[in-house]
Structure formats: structure tokens, C-alpha cells
Simulated scan of single mutants.
Amino acid sequence: MKKLNLLSLALSCVLGFASCSDNTSPVLAEDQLASVNNSKSTGKIAGAPWVKQFEDTFNVGSNLSQWTKEQRADYNSWYCDYASSVPTTQWRDGKQCLEIKTTKLSTYKYQSGFISSNYQYKPENNTEYMLSANIKLVAMDGGTYKSFTQTYGAWPAFWSVQQNAWPTKGEIDIMEGYSFAPNASRFTSNLFYGTSSGTNLIGNSAERNYPGNFDINGNGGWHLYESFWKMKDNVVTVTIKVDNVTVSTYTNSSAANLNLNNFGPHSIIFNLNVGSKDSNFIDPNKINLFSSVMMWVDDVTVYKRPI
């Protein structure tokens, strides 16, 4: 997500957050992964009156034509560059997935990936949109799987935003994950908004921590993340859910200077950042991603309904 660096208020940043988790099953070599854990997808299949607007199941061999794969430095970190070659489709946990994988290039430089959907959406009056994605975070130490909670300095994200003139059309962070091993990793939702390009008027006042009982290792590390964005009689509400449990509900009264009526149209973004421009937040000397940290996305859907 985009946010202002705490040490340099003149900078505007696009973060990378994503979601959670890891593998608690016995450690496996990577070539074994496709044959295990063939659990059914938790993909959101919504009945009437919901109507599907967008879907990507990330079938292996896909060229990700519904997405833009960015090639640039991360706006929030001195230590992460995005390469358009990084986002790929792979068999993971018996599922066809988007994979975004970190690679250490040097002591203070990592390569990762960032994709944004060509599809955009925002609710008209008396409509609601439901954006859903199934995500797993996992680390690798050679041929051994490690928990995301054992890493330090990873910053994955699943969010929606209008990147042009950020944050004048708002930003909705469904999941931002921060790995702080050996201290507890944390996950949040958040909003950003401003009336002029590059100036966020609400700081981090809309940041909401996930419930304390959220277990990123549960369900084999796979979790369903959702954003419900609706306008009813010109009143806008955004609700964030994880595994069908409400994490946060936002209205214009949730933060000073917030105006949800000015949000949108938004693209969908998945990215995996490393480090930060604020060394008090993520110490670059402590970054430990083992061989790699990976974000796997099983599927993503957008449904719409009248309300």
C-alpha cells in the first residue's frame, strides 16, 4: 500500500502487503509440493444475487494477461526491487497458484514481484462488491520449508488502489503482513486517503490489527481474505474479513479527513516487499528470509450485487 514514510513525510509510498502463513506439515523438498495437501480451494463461489465480475484461477502456463507486472523499486523500501519476471504461475500445495518469490541479490538488495489488475471497480449507489483471495505465505531454507513467522523483514500485501494521483481515490489494504521474528509477526487492514497527490491525510489512524487469535499456520497456511465495499443510499462502508471473521468495518467516521465517497475506481494488487525506508520499523541488518519467502495466491474473484 501507499503510505508516508515515518522518517520522510515528503515521500509517498506504495507498500506491498499480503497475507499470511506457512506450512506446519513435515518439511518437504520443493519438487514434492505439488503432490501433497490436495485440499479443496476455499475460493469464494457466491450465489444469487451475487454476479461474478472478475476471476483469475492462475492456471499453470498463464501469461497473467489480466495483470500488469511492475518493474521498479518499491516506494516504501530501500532494499526491494520489483522485476516483471518474478510473478509466475506454479503448482503449489496441489493448487494452481500465482507465486511471488523473493530472491536475495546482495547484502542489502532483494528482488521480488508486484502485480496490479487491469480490471478496476468501485460500487455504484445501492450496490456492493466482494473481493476475495486465498493466500499462503511460506519461506524456504534450501529444500526445507519454514514458517513465515520465522522470518524477519518480509512485508507482503493484498490491497486495492487507484495508483494515479495516490491517495486521492483512496486505498484499501485488506491484508498487510509484517514478519518480525523472533518477536511476533503482525497482520493489519488499513485505509489511506487525501485530497492532493502524494499527501495522505489520515496517517495510520485507520490501521486495524487482526484478532489476537489469528493463526497464520492454521488451515495449512491458507486463508481467505475479503473486502466488502458497498454504497447504500450514498453511504459507503468497507468491511474486511479473514476466514469469514470480520476484522474491521470502516465508515467516514473511522478516521478524521476520511471520505470513502471519493474512493475508486480501484485495481487489485498483490506484492511482496522486503524491508523499509524506516530502519526503526524494519532493521535492515536483521532481515532474514532464509533462501526465499513466497506468496502463493490460489485464486481471486470479484462479485457484485444490488443492495
Rank of each mutant, 00 (worst) to 15 (best):
I100F: 03
L137K: 14
L33W: 10
S253N: 11
E55H: 12
L260Y: 01
D81K: 11
S65G: 10
T103H: 15
Y225D: 10
A256L: 04
C97G: 07
A18I: 01
W229F: 13
S196E: 08
D56L: 04
M1L: 09
N285A: 13
G275K: 08
T188S: 10
K146F: 05
L64C: 08
S84Y: 14
T149S: 05
V245N: 10
T103L: 10
E226A: 14
K40S: 13
D299A: 13
T144N: 08
N257H: 13
W50Y: 14
G94S: 15
S84I: 11
S292R: 12
L201G: 02
T89M: 15
T57K: 12
T151E: 04
G275Y: 05
R305M: 11
V86G: 05
W50C: 11
S267A: 09
G198M: 03
S205D: 08
F290H: 12
G113M: 06
N200G: 04
F281P: 01
T301Y: 12
Y193L: 00
S116G: 03
P49Q: 07
F270N: 02
S65H: 13
L11E: 09
S189I: 06
A157G: 14
V36H: 08
K146L: 00
S21C: 12
G212A: 15
K3A: 06
K52N: 03
D299W: 15
Y303P: 00
D215V: 05
V86L: 11
T239R: 13
Q32H: 02
V238Q: 04
N288Q: 07
L258K: 00
I287E: 04
T195H: 07
E176W: 02
S41E: 08
N262G: 09
N118G: 01
S65I: 15
G61A: 11
T188L: 01
W50T: 11
A184V: 13
K136W: 13
V300F: 09
N252C: 09
Q162D: 08
N38F: 00
K104F: 06
M175G: 06
S205E: 11
L289R: 10
F263N: 02
T57S: 15
N209K: 13
N183R: 11
G142T: 00
E70R: 13
P306C: 05
L272Y: 04
A256I: 00
K277F: 08
F281N: 04
F180S: 11
I45T: 14
F158C: 00
K101M: 08
M130E: 01
V161K: 01
P265L: 12
Q120V: 05
F180W: 05
N125S: 14
R208C: 07
N190A: 05
A165T: 12
N261I: 00
E176A: 12
V300G: 09
E171L: 01
D278N: 15
Q90T: 14
G275P: 02
G194Q: 05
Y193N: 00
K40L: 14
R92P: 03
Y119M: 03
N126P: 01
D22M: 09
K169D: 06
L33R: 08
Y178K: 10
T246F: 10
